[in-house]
Design a protein around this nucleic acid. Sequence first.
DNA 1: CTGTGCTCTGTGAGCGTTCACAGTAGAGAA
DNA 2: TTCTCTACTGTGAACGCTCACAGAGCACAG
Lengths: 343, 343
Amino acid sequence: MTMSNTGGRRKPPTIHDVARVAGVSRGTVSRVLNGGHYVSPAAQEAVNAAIRKTGYVVNRHARSLITGRSDSIGFLLTEPQEKLFEDPNFNVLLRCCTQALAAHDIPLLLMLAGTEDERRRITRYITAGHVDGVLLVSSHSCDPVADELHEAGVPVVQCGKPMGLGSKVSYVAADDRGGARDMVRHLLSLGRRRIGVVSGPLDTPGGVDRLAGYKEVLGEAGVEIDERLIVSGDYSRASGEAGAERLLARAPDMDAVFVASDLMAQGALTALRRAGRRVPEDVSVGGFDDSVAATESTPALTTIRQPYDRISAEMVRVLLAQIGGDDPAAVILPTELVRRDST
Amino acid sequence: MTMSNTGGRRKPPTIHDVARVAGVSRGTVSRVLNGGHYVSPAAQEAVNAAIRKTGYVVNRHARSLITGRSDSIGFLLTEPQEKLFEDPNFNVLLRCCTQALAAHDIPLLLMLAGTEDERRRITRYITAGHVDGVLLVSSHSCDPVADELHEAGVPVVQCGKPMGLGSKVSYVAADDRGGARDMVRHLLSLGRRRIGVVSGPLDTPGGVDRLAGYKEVLGEAGVEIDERLIVSGDYSRASGEAGAERLLARAPDMDAVFVASDLMAQGALTALRRAGRRVPEDVSVGGFDDSVAATESTPALTTIRQPYDRISAEMVRVLLAQIGGDDPAAVILPTELVRRDST
DNA sequence: CTGTGCTCTGTGAGCGTTCACAGTAGAGAA
DNA sequence: TTCTCTACTGTGAACGCTCACAGAGCACAG
């Protein structure tokens, strides 16, 4: 009786069609669709059968028009994209967030705000209510856009700790300080005492916290903190290479180095090799992130694993809770030391 | 007179508000919004001023409800995501597509269909009309989902040539055969005659075409095609390493090797180094893709550049044209030889 | 003067859904 | 019986927009 469905787009069945087939009213179908409260088991079953039979899928536009929700969320990237897309961590984050949202049947809109123009356009788009919330990733993590959106009443969860203390924006981050502490303790346990550090940029919380962890542990262990053993980079491979070179020049007796990202650690390995230092025999090298870079380098890096899968899951959880009316929340997740061949 | 807009989400202005402020009717505002035909300059100006004043942004849900278009498109990935997300090419593709769409003010929905369940859910979502079209990326590029969607009347553009010849699905691909030809010609021009190949998987058009290009050029140059010089891999680093090892075992006099992806070429470099072969002195190595892997390896790889930026732009162009009513189209884009240190 | 064609404008209907409300039926209490 | 309460169901009115249509005003030809 029904027409064949191949070739050409056919007008999809509406809630009305389902109601007719099930022999109930629109309202009942709608109730079944939205949780099934106050629906008799018989009606429930009839509606479900009709949905299967007609192949009905809810029209989200019509729903959104009346509920005011869009049932979709935005994944916003506010930094130069070339850089972030090369970062394996970012890819994991994007993938995990998409999957976590898919479990809730919520589509993810990818938004890239590299230029000022794009930023404006996207901000308008978001504040116009086209997404219910925003997952924000920014390498600086002190991006004003987070506060802007928050001010405008848009639920936001940021990946990584915000710089300013005044910010009331939700965030999920790994325990940078704790991770750094673990790594430095590990290096100390190997008998190393001249431990250098290539920190991250000191205008980011991650950079500051990892350096703080380093200093704390050395202090606690009664090891002198030597400023010649401290340099900072920008998380790029090149800056890791340059940083390690500078350390070697200033402190040739360095016997270990904590490098605040795996990518930088790769660069550091290059510099050490060129300087004729054997890793791990002469110098132990510890990274941070446990990205694919850690296993690809030779020797494979001992590093601090950031639980990106859990970070994504938490970001989604916190965001959905906030959309549901909860207050902003901050979540810090524990890291884990992963031993490989570089220490 | 207007209320402050900070804190809490305020009901956004509608087309009605704009009309009132501009002193015209809804219809006129709508016409301005949709191209401004049949609108007097005075009304045009009044409406634009009112839009600026009220901060009006069109409610896409309401629009979609009536137009039937969603004004958004899906970026669909049908393969195990871990693998693809590691692939730098894929990242470039995703980024460029997002930007190309942003230029048309069209949001991109990221859809990952790893499991069979996810596939079904996403297919329903798509065929229900929640996106106007789909950009499809699949490493196999012989995915049945392309034809399924096409059959269902959903505009689809695939990245890479489809395997089956019967498929009427649009695609955009780099010139694999031509690229392979260029590389092998390049190796010949260096005086190499015992040229091996690590091809891609032979159940994919890319794998087949690159191998075909290799054989063609050797044939044209009158160089004997030696089956011992031909192995295939799966584009992974490990398979490149294994492939190069096998080649060396079977043909120790090999003086060059064309490896069908940069990632595999990295693996091949490792195998060659281990076997004591110098690159490029003893063996020239040519890659394919010009991904970041090409510059990161030592020596930096001579490779064939796939114009991913142009591929993305073309995918979007073809898809939008198809949504606009055009017939499916196939686009093949030229590649480019990039000389570095490995040849 | 009428008719025709053009540009421009306003209006009503309707897209597919949810929500509030009214209403029904049946059970149990008074 | 009658009243109340609960579980369930149907209906009209929105949500904000576009589209088709009708109509106004004007110019110009017949």
